[in-house]
Amino acid sequence: MLRAMSLMAIFVFALIRPVTAADAVNPQADFKAFRDYFTKKFPNVPLNDFVNGPYSMDAGLRKQWLEIDQFPPYDFAIDRGKQMFAKPFKNGKTYGDCFPNKGIGIRQNYPYFDEKSGQVITLELALNQCREANGEAPYSYVKDEMASLTAYMAFTSRGKPFDIKIPNDPRALAAYEKGEEYFYTRRGQLNFSCASCHVQSAGEHIRTEMLAPALGILAAMPIYRSEWNGMGTISRRFVTCNSQVRGVPLPPQDELYRDVEYYLSYMSNGLPIAGPGTRP
């Protein structure tokens, strides 16, 4: 009887153990699997070209993009952002005073996990924190001023590889995992997850649009989107993605949106910043 019970226990343990191992949070293993998936799925796309989204996998779209880029529609946002960035607040300080290296060439390090506050800090959040710390009202997270400021900061980081760190802090690992969970969770009446489009269907068409691969998907942000007839931030992209699957979006810069940005940016480590960009 005891022997039978022991055998049963070993059998149950053997069944459970692999699931536990698979469920353990392992960003390095996720990173490798993520990269392998996309490079195998699109063997003809050079690794660094993934940051160009649909233009990396459709010759016709790429040709149009190169034509558009002769006179980039995001240029106005860069110029405006540059002016805003240099203009002192009422107290005489500037955005540069809030950031390392005066805010130049640092986009690739965002988002980061702030061990002091225990949360993920995105560039958009850091910009508004900077404004509020200097007695200024925060900007809308989705477009206009925020898009201009992040466009300028991204421009000063062009070509620099994403360098997202996950510190040895269980809270950072938890934020990473929450971001991963959000990315793969189906939601909305259409029952889509972020991954439904940008992993399982990357490179395919949804109506007239080609779905961008998740690898490098945030590297060109913020973007001038023809569909929007203007600039939009990462916050805007997440909000519209949720709405498009008939899910009520979270507030911009909600903790979960920041966590999913953390997860996706970590997955793009080593890929060059290409923002600001254009998309159909």
């Binding site: 698979a22 996720d30 699997a33 793969y184 939601r187 992993v199």
Partner: peptide
């Protein structure tokens, strides 16, 4: 109620979609 059922189901089901 359907959205609640979806959320409850996805609490576990999301893991099956993760790239491994």
């Amino acid at each position: 109620k359907a959205s609640i059922a979806q959320a409850r189901e996805q609490e576990i089901a999301w893991r099956a979609a993760v790239i491994h």
